[in-house]
Every structure is written in C-alpha cells, then in structure tokens.
Design a protein around this nucleic acid. Structure first.
Lengths: 212, 212
DNA sequence: GTCTATAGCTGGATAGAC
DNA sequence: GTCTATCCAGCTATAGAC
C-alpha cells in the first residue's frame, strides 16, 4: 500500500495545493455568493493565475464538486458526532440544533449541499453518499422517539429546513429562528410520538424518561 | 403625463407591450431558471430584438422589478381572496394551503418573491408593498386562532416555508409536502393556540388525512 | 507547475439608420 | 419603436514558453 517516497511527497503536495484552492473558493463564495464564483477571482485569491487552477481541477464544476464533497464530509462529521445523552428527545433536539446551526452559519455551503442552484452541476456519487447517510441517521433519531411514519419523517424535514430557510433569509447571522429548535421539537413530538409525553411550554428543563 | 386621447392610446399600447415582454420573461425563467434570463433570449421569445427591450425597460433589473411587482400583486390577490368559512382553523388551513400551492406551483416566482438570489436586485418599494401586507394578513389569521406571540408567528412562517422548500426541492410538481398542510396546522395549533374554548371544534378529535 | 497571452464565447447595453 | 451592427466587459478554457 506504500508508494515510493517521491510519489507520496508529490501526492501530498498536490493534495495540499488542491485544499488551498478549495479553501480560497469557500472564501470567494462567502464573499460573492455561490454562483458568483469565477476562475479569475479564485485564482487571484489563491495567489496563482487561472491556468494553474486547471492543473488541479478539470473544470469549474470539478471545483464545485470538491467543495461539495468537503462540505458533505463536514456535515456528516457534525451530525454523527457522539451525542452526550441517552434521552431520545435530547438526541433529537441536539441533532436538529446541529443541523440548523451547521446550515445557518454558512449559507453558501447550505446552498451548495441542499439546494441545487448551480446550473448544470450535479455532485458526483462519491461526494453525494455522505448526505444520504446523514438523512438516514436523521430517520434513526426519529425512530428513537417512536416516529417512523414516512409522512412524519417528511414533516420533520420540512420543519427543520423551514427554520434554516427563515434564519438565512430573514435574520442572517442571528438566532431568531435557530433558538426555536427546542420548542419545535416538543411541538413535533407532542403530535407525532406514539406515547405523548408531558411537555412544558417553555424551554425549562424537564424530567427525562417519562416515555419509556 | 399626457391626458389627451392620443396620449392615452399610446400609453395603452406601451403598457400592453410591456406586459407582453414580462409574460415572455416568465416563460423564459420557467424554462431556463430565474438567473438564466438573458436579454437576447427574452427578445427572441418576445419576437423583437434586444434593443427594443430597452424602449420599454431601462435595464434587466427593471424587468425583474416588473416581474416582482406582478407576482406580488398575484400573491396578494390569492391570499386575500374571500375565505369561504368563518371557522378560524379552516381559515388558517386555507391560507396556508393557498400560500404553499402558490409558491410550489411556480418555483421561479417563489424564488423571485421570497428568496433574494438575483445579485444586486432589490425590488422597488412600490413592488414590495403588497408582500408586506400579505405577511400582515397572515398574522391576522393567526390571531383569529389566538396566536399572537412573535415567537409563534416565527414558528408559523418557518413551518409553511419549510413545506414549500421541501416540495420544490424534493418533489417538484408533486404534492408530497403540500398535502401535509392540514396536519401541520393541527400540530401547530395544538401547541401554540391558547386553552381551547369549549365551543370549538377542539372537541372533535384530530385525525390524520381527514378533510372537513 | 506556473506563467503570459489569447482564443472563443456570451453577456448587457448602445449608436445610428429608418 | 424597431431594426442592424457593434462595443465592451466578463467568462471558461487552452496553447505554448519556461
């Protein structure tokens, strides 16, 4: 599995250069918008000239794909990180909070990952796989709370993406909607969970384990 | 502002030509995407040449603004049309259904009206006014159901836009999320509405998928 | 691998004849 | 008002020297 030393070294150099370009690309889209990425601007930010970019990427779409893959990996890492509790409700809340904050803190990343607004761009299957896994993990956390109906899974995705959507559109950088996660979860569980638990209206700590 | 007959006639001609161009612009964005609108393509669709467009609009943004104003007026008309019931819950459901269907049946229109994705485009105040009024009317329908807390108004907007978002992104042309409106409303009211009045339909148990 | 230079294209917008 | 013709800016991508 070990290549010769020079090969490894070159491979490492190449990868770090790619990563530097991708990093510059993220800075670019955060400043100019996702669709506003241009090879000229990216080259300038990366400290090279446009043709050099084509030594590392085949096309502009190839750069978007690398960004997509990186973002998808970050997303998976955030969502699948250990949950510091065994309480199903707490797990669901934590998962939702992670999702909403991950999306709301970086709108271009959200736009690239979950909204398809780049004309002609489709992520490669390798890049796309983590996102699918993350959705499945979301369904697992719902199942922990007794929510398994596809209809309710759809309501759940609408609920959390609605929070993200409003936060990004109407209060960028703030927390006007992100802070509503816990109350939304309680509302959702009160309606969709099979054995209704006692819930208090406000965000006060409550006793755990009333459900099982 | 010439008021003589010839002036009126010319004004009428000018307006109808403008409307024809705007109509062609809608056809264009439905085919090519909102950001994919080009003056060349628009001119071709409208049966004229690009310079002619500038006889009716000052710029491409000016065309977007005309589209925005038209869409906002349509939106207001749909939302404020008479509600064929006095029941607060039915009114809320109807309003939400109108909103979700209005948005989901025409994604570019939704994108132009409610998401700000055209770089550098801001609607003129005249065009923007109807949308503000529509939001206020939404708050009035919530108030009919006893929901007045800003926090709950925000939850409401997140809820309905989440349905729209998922419907457009994951099932365009279908009704996988739009059909969830009624159940979402019941979930929302169960959580946010004040103690149910004894005279209301709260007595009838909520059941899924049942139309009144 | 990185550069200079440029091809080849498409975009918004305009000049000026009619 | 509408046209032909065009300007000029910006884009992706490539050729070829080093």
């Amino acid at each position: 599995m070990v290549k010769d030393e020079v090969g490894d070294w070159r491979e490492g150099r190449r990868r770090s250069a790619r990563e530097a370009i991708v990093e510059a690309a993220w800075a670019a889209v955060r400043g100019e918008g996702l669709a506003g990425l241009t090879m000229r601007d990216l080259a300038r930010r990366a400290g090279v000239t446009p043709p050099t970019l084509y030594a590392y990427f085949e096309s502009k779409h190839d750069i978007y794909d690398a960004m997509f893959g990186q973002a998808a990996a970050e997303f998976t890492a955030v969502i699948t990180a250990p949950y510091p509790t065994d309480d199903p409700r707490e797990i669901l809340i934590t998962g939702a909070r992670r999702f909403v904050e991950f999306c709301a803190t970086d709108p271009p990343r959200y736009q690239l990952l979950f909204q398809r607004t780049i004309p002609g761009f489709e992520p490669s299957p390798e890049s796309y796989a983590p996102a699918v896994e993350a959705l499945a993990s979301s369904h697992r956390r719902l199942a922990l709370n007794g929510v398994t109906a596809p209809r309710h899974q759809d309501m759940w995705t609408a609920l959390v993406t609605g929070l993200v959507d409003q936060q990004i559109s109407n209060d960028p950088g703030g927390e006007r909607w992100t802070r509503l996660v816990e109350e939304m979860v309680d509302m959702f569980l009160a309606h969709c969970a099979p054995a209704p638990r006692s819930t208090t209206r406000k965000a006060s700590p409550r006793q755990k384990g009333t459900r099982s």
